[in-house]
């Protein structure tokens, strides 16, 4: 099963809430609380969206997460945490990563994150739908319908 949304959060409560609320909104989501497993999950599932909860993370953990973000291959990144954590994260990643992300400082806003995830996923689906419509048109023309 492929997961379009992957969460990393070492915090059982914050990670659990995000996982539950996203699933409840019909979004297929995987939650990992260990860095090595998160890296493996990102490489396996190539998610559309990666949510990194870096609240109270150690500097080394932020560096590790920043490296994971470099392997995201066009996925949208949502970083959540305290302002100090986010500043540390920003220093670790390149401009390229920062262009395609959203940084949300505390307090944790699960409902806002759900709406952002839905928005990003629907925007990413649109080009695909448009492509399908073109294909449909071509097919119809070919079949002279």
């Amino acid at each position: 099963m492929a997961f379009p949304v992957i969460i990393y959060s070492a915090d059982k409560s914050r990670g659990g809430i995000l996982h539950k609320i996203l699933k409840r909104n019909g979004l297929s989501t995987l939650w990992e609380n260990q860095l090595s497993q998160t890296q493996a999950a990102v490489l396996t599932h190539h998610p559309e969206i990666f949510i990194a909860d870096i609240k109270n993370a150690l500097k080394n953990e932020i560096v590790f997460l920043a490296n994971i973000c470099l392997k995201l291959q066009g996925a949208f990144l949502i970083v959540i945490g305290g302002s100090v954590d986010i500043n540390t994260f920003e220093k670790q990643v390149s401009e390229l990563v920062l262009e395609n992300n959203l940084r949300l400082t505390d307090p944790l806003s699960p409902e806002l994150i759900v709406s952002k995830v839905k928005e990003v996923l629907s925007l990413r689906e649109k080009p695909l739908q448009a492509q399908q419509t073109d294909l449909e048109i071509d097919l119809k023309q070919f079949l002279k319908l």
Binding site: S13, R14, I17, K55, G82, D106, P107, L108, S109, P110, E111, L112
Partner: peptide, 8 residues
């Protein structure tokens, strides 16, 4: 508390 989430 810094654990308090936004509850709509």
């Amino acid at each position: 508390s810094d654990q308090m989430p936004m509850i709509a």
